[in-house]
Design a protein around this nucleic acid. Sequence first.
DNA 1: CAATTGTCTATTGGATCCAATTATGCCACG
DNA 2: CGTGGCATAATTGGATCCAATAGACAATTG
Lengths: 226, 226
Amino acid sequence: MPKLDLSALIAEAGGRHRTATEFVEATLRTAILTGRLRGGTPLRQEDLAASFGVSRMPIREALRQLEAQALLDFVPHKGAVVTDISATDAADIYAIRLALEPAVLERSIPHLTRADFERAGDLIAEMDGEEDPGRMGELNRRFHMTLYGAAGRPKLIALTENYLASFDRYLRFQLAAKGRSHLSQDEHRDMLAAAEHRDARRAVEILRHHIGAAADNIAAFFAGQE
Amino acid sequence: MPKLDLSALIAEAGGRHRTATEFVEATLRTAILTGRLRGGTPLRQEDLAASFGVSRMPIREALRQLEAQALLDFVPHKGAVVTDISATDAADIYAIRLALEPAVLERSIPHLTRADFERAGDLIAEMDGEEDPGRMGELNRRFHMTLYGAAGRPKLIALTENYLASFDRYLRFQLAAKGRSHLSQDEHRDMLAAAEHRDARRAVEILRHHIGAAADNIAAFFAGQE
DNA sequence: CAATTGTCTATTGGATCCAATTATGCCACG
DNA sequence: CGTGGCATAATTGGATCCAATAGACAATTG
């Protein structure tokens, strides 16, 4: 009997993957990033295999990949434990975002198109009416990535997206703590406006503040919970 | 009969690893990063298993981790091929370094100690007399990391080191093309001096130029080779 | 009654085995 | 002589099996 209930995740992930390993890896990653798997949770290969209906082999390969992405640690005879989120880690990820995102945005702004601006605007509008924190994080991520997408540096963009997603893990706690969050929609609007005017300097300035505010919220959350 | 000769690598890597998987992963990564395994080389699981004297299982897990680090791609029925280095990739990694390293250096400078400065100075001196490109890259990396080490953000530092190492792959070609390289030793000295005076602004400025110069060299190399 | 030790079980790391898929090479035929 | 199709071999993805190790729990002894 599996102790983990991933059936919902497995069902919604659908079958759009070449190999079982890829499927397992994608499903587990979203499970961790969306907070459905909490930090510290030990993942037993046997249980996962039962949940996914495959043998332990693809599970092991998927876990290795997630380990390489620093989403979990291998502890001998204890299982792969989901890396815990801590105040220092949050500060770390914040520092990384602060280093990457302004650089990406600056490169991207000159090449953004009318269509990009419209998509970004639509996403802001969608966030206005959103209540679900999980969906909110998703929309927020897509908004940011839309503005970064024209930077023309695929690896840089992929790296940025990766840490943006990691940040979502922390953000989720913040959202849960504050009830509904507005995620600084004003700043989203200002940033988009600056981008439309091709004012990279101002857009970057807003973005820095935006990221900083999110980090402060998380820090406050950690400070208040202990 | 294995078609790949990794015996030298395997011997020098020594046995300081907990599991076979970790050993294989570490050995293959240095083989790729040091250029001993060229881009485009297909890695057959069977051959690797024979070379390492283990079964295909730890090989597969190690390959998965390397795939997650973007060092190779899985191609069905062809093997895991070492990701090729290209001009656009080099530009990508350069952009990432340019985003990360100034941020790390700025954070680190206030906390560097006398001992750090001495180690950095020793490394510069060692580079002066070094002829071997491989060893040169190693020293260069350690010099940079010494200056970054006090930033107090482990994840940020690890990420930076990772891309610094990736850059070495490209640098190696540059060194090979130019014969002996000086790797801008003057800039190394200036950067260290600025750090000792806790002049973060100036140190960052030199670093930006330093990274940019390396990128230009690589770009020129790619432009000249086609 | 507590501490220590020994055994037993849970869990992972590694090996071998099987199936599916695709690249390759050969042969026939135009 | 070139081309296309078929058969075979090579290679990976996945399953099952075995071994080693650490942790838990109980029994025994001081």
